[in-house]
């Protein structure tokens, strides 16, 4: 499989790798995919005054999955939650030049962003904030 230069670049120098404390009040965590399917993404956001001030990821998956999640963290930093929720997988496909067989990687990244936002909102609700 030939990879695009952008996939290789993100794979070799992934942005924002790491983890935040899951229990932190201002952190939302999205964990999507399944080991049996060959990809799992964990994407976390830290939210300050309604804006994503920082993001981190860890991914088990092919090079395109790693690149998609790396790019996703870059895109959402500085966005409001509503803006981030609007991100579509097609933006990732375009930016990384993903071939058709790798589109599911971008879908997973979109799902991870949504799941992280969801988790953050749920946490806030549970705490009555």
């Amino acid at each position: 499989m030939a990879y695009s230069d952008k996939v290789i670049e993100h794979y070799e120098n992934p942005r924002n790798v790491g983890s935040f404390g899951k229990e932190d009040d201002d952190v939302g965590t999205g964990l999507v995919g399944a080991p049996a399917c060959g990809d799992v993404m964990k994407l976390q956001i830290r939210v300050t005054d309604g804006v994503i001030s920082d993001a981190k990821f860890k991914t088990f998956g092919c090079g395109s999955a790693i690149a998609s999640s790396s790019l996703a963290t870059e895109m959402i930093k500085g966005m409001t939650l509503d803006q981030a929720a609007e991100i579509k997988n097609t933006q990732i496909v375009e930016e990384l030049n993903l071939p058709p067989v790798k589109i599911h990687c971008s879908v997973l990244a979109e799902d991870a962003i949504k799941a992280a936002i969801e988790d953050y909102k749920k946490k806030r609700q549970e705490r009555g904030q």
Binding site: Y3, G38, F60, G61, C62, G63, A65
Partner: peptide, 10 residues
């Protein structure tokens, strides 16, 4: 374990 094969091939 915990490392996907294609990413390793890359």
């Amino acid at each position: 374990a915990f490392v996907e094969g294609e990413s390793l091939l890359m």
